[in-house]
Design a binder for these strands. Sequence first.
DNA 1: AACGGTCACAACCGCAAGCAC
DNA 2: CGTGCTTGCGGTTGTGACCGT
Length: 261
Amino acid sequence: MYWGEVMACHMGRGVMEEEAWRKGPWTSEEDKLLVEYVRLHGEGRWNSVSRLAGLKRNGKSCRLRWVNYLRPDLKRGQITPQEESIILELHARWGNRWSTIARSLPGRTDNEIKNYWRTHFKKKAKSPSDAAEKARNRLLRKQQFQQQQQQQLQQQQHQAQQQQLQFNFDMKGIMALLEDNTHRAPYASQSRQEMVNMQQNSTEEQGFLYSMLNGHPSAQDTSADEILWDGLWNMDDVHGNSNVHSAASKVGLYSLVAPFC
DNA sequence: AACGGTCACAACCGCAAGCAC
DNA sequence: CGTGCTTGCGGTTGTGACCGT
């Protein structure tokens, strides 16, 4: 029992120590304190949370709570089939590097993906039918990528027209994002630096996915093609063709919005 | 209704890397 | 260069909900 543990922690020692951190489920009051702390001081310096926010939680616990539950950019709800296929693909590539996998799924946490994998795939992994399913999914995505490459070629041929189109899409995205931000009022004051960081992360994600789909061994490979692919990826998102990466596109658009904030 | 199994999720723990001093 | 602190990561555990028997 959580509370039993807490009480034992408090009563087991003759003298109440300052480090008698609270454990177990977070209360809404604690959540409020933590959110307020992050709003005022930003992420990081977790060990000072207890002192500055009056929380009887250690830094690790605070960080975990924030990262896995309170962060405003978290995506709620079930893992979609598209996300599932990405998880399968990335797990096949990276193994249990959950944080790496999570970086390619904006709004999802490593903990969430880890839990999902354990409950959905760990037991099924040995099943041959699932292996066939995975192979089929891989083939499908490869075909999708080839289609997109063709589309990319056409784009290059009509570059001037596409640039105009891109501008229109970006403006739509900015307007949608601004509207979205007004609906997230408590976090609308997010700093520009945070947005820049988010954009950097987003670029890494897209870079990785590109290299993955293109068969490049290293996620760090950067090329003109990658940049083009980034644009293509975002365009699909703005078109609304992909629910999976809508969060990624939002994050990407932060770079466009930041100068206006 | 009671029980056991499974699932989904939150949270904790130990370890290691990064960093400042 | 060594040390201590902070942070991040992956593994594991605990708990409640749900479902079938």
